[in-house]
Amino acid sequence: MGENVALGRGVLRRARTYVSGRPTTQKAGAGVAAALLASAPFGGLAAVPEPPPGTLRLGQPIQVGPYEMVIDQVVELPDLAPAVTPQPSERVLVLDAHVTLTGDRPEYAVTLTNHVTVAGGGVEVEGRPSLYFVEDSSRMSGFNPGLTYRLALTFTTSGPWQGDVVTVRTNLVEFREEDRQTLDPDAWVGRDEVEWQGSLPLVRRT
């Protein structure tokens, strides 16, 4: 027992000698590290919690990267001829929306369609949505800034939607002056992070 105490004192003494021999900068650094470790039980080392997604509602303007989008209604149809004609067992889910490109340069529609998803309803949603003009059902592929269009964002689903609500999510799309993945300058890059989410009422039409 006494031996152990003596041993402990020896270790302490050697540690004290070692510490006092260090330069002041190292002492300060060690102090900061110790303070940080001490704060760990109170959340000092925990990541900053991500803000929860904003709540999406009908008629509410939201920003998806460079696009401002207002979803006016969510409609399910057996088909949307001539734009979309799925198999008889499948359905088309349409986000009827007004979309404006903000900023001062053109963008291609994939910057929007890649970052909007729907969920729920107990059905499978096939791939990315397509984008059509409601007025003449021609395909929308590229936007010029400053113009507002009424567009149909169409999803093909494996069957009839169950229930009366559709969960619509949009991902965070960031502007990066230099994107490390594509090496493209000034690019809109989608993040794997939901920015807006909401349960919207579903309208069925035949």
Partner: peptide, 11 residues
């Protein structure tokens, strides 16, 4: 000096 792209909408 802003850019504007062509539409593919009119057939």
């Amino acid at each position: 000096d802003h850019r504007w792209i062509a539409s593919t909408r009119g057939s």
